[in-house]
């Protein structure tokens, strides 16, 4: 089922004549993991900010469940329908990890209304990400990059969104946690029917993708086209490799 659609999307920054995204058309389905790959400055993060409702495209439209984001309340969309994992974490550094999660639940008007229950749910979510209670009760300021990244992931999942958008979500994680997080993404898509969109440079992340999308100079390419366009010294996993890795991961 189509969850998100981009229809001939163009984007340029305020005061700039050059387009960062040039006529992107794509659709994202529920129950699938997508990875977006591309060089730095290709427009990947801009694309994510449009999909996550943080910004509005200059031309064209982004549709969520058939409705244009221009017409939807984007605050509600961000609070309830999408969970964003930022590359820079974007957590409230003066507050504890657990408070960051419960606050996100409150903003999204979560079904859990009882304060203690909300806190327990947040602890459980953090525990899933490998953050113990003691760490969860510490201020973000005192957490390592890896711990902050896990909290960022937990926060994005805290309101059970339909779409999960992640910008380099495993960049600061050790191999073990990376594996666990990727398993969570796969499970969310394949078992819970979520649409997971990940921007990454990591081969391991690309390996779990059901679809790989390449982006070059603001234009979209299929994974195969993208790989073909790369200089010979740069390599992303071949389709066969990808399939093998997905199988390994699922096992």
């Amino acid at each position: 089922m189509k969850c998100l659609e981009l229809a001939d999307v163009y984007y340029r920054y305020e005061g700039s004549a050059d387009y960062v995204l040039k006529g992107i058309t794509a659709s994202f389905e529920s129950g699938k993991v997508y990875t977006i790959i591309g060089e730095s400055g290709a427009g990947k993060s801009t694309l994510l900010s449009l999909i996550s409702g943080l910004d509005v495209c200059t031309e064209g439209d982004v549709y969520y469940e058939g409705k244009s984001l221009r017409k939807l309340d984007r605050d509600d969309y961000r609070a309830k329908s999408v969970g964003v994992i930022f590359q820079g974490y974007n957590l409230l550094t003066n507050f504890t990890a657990v408070y960051n999660i419960t606050l996100s639940m409150s903003i999204s008007e979560s079904e859990i209304t009882d304060r203690q229950a909300k806190k327990e749910a947040a602890y459980a979510l953090l525990d899933n990400m490998g953050v113990d209670r003691e760490t969860a009760d510490r201020k973000i300021l005192y957490l390592s990059g890896g711990e902050q990244q896990r909290v960022g992931i937990a926060r994005a999942l805290s309101h059970n969104p339909d779409v999960i958008i992640a910008d380099e979500p495993t960049g600061n994680l050790d191999a073990e946690t990376e594996g666990a997080v990727l398993n969570i993404f796969t499970r969310l898509a394949h078992e819970d029917g979520k649409c997971v969109i990940i921007v990454t440079h990591s081969e391991n992340v690309t390996a779990i993708a059901d679809e790989v999308i390449g982006i070059r100079a603001g234009k979209l390419l299929s994974g195969t086209e993208y790989r073909a366009s790369l200089p010979c010294h740069v390599s992303y996993p071949s389709q066969e490799n990808l399939e093998t890795k997905i199988k390994e991961n699922e096992q």
């Binding site: 961000r78 309830k80 974007n90 409230l92 903003i107 999204s108």
Partner: peptide, 13 residues
């Protein structure tokens, strides 16, 4: 920054 984070989380103005 705090305002940016809260708005990004969907908190209304």
């Amino acid at each position: 920054y705090e305002i940016g984070v809260l708005r990004a989380m969907g908190m209304k103005k």
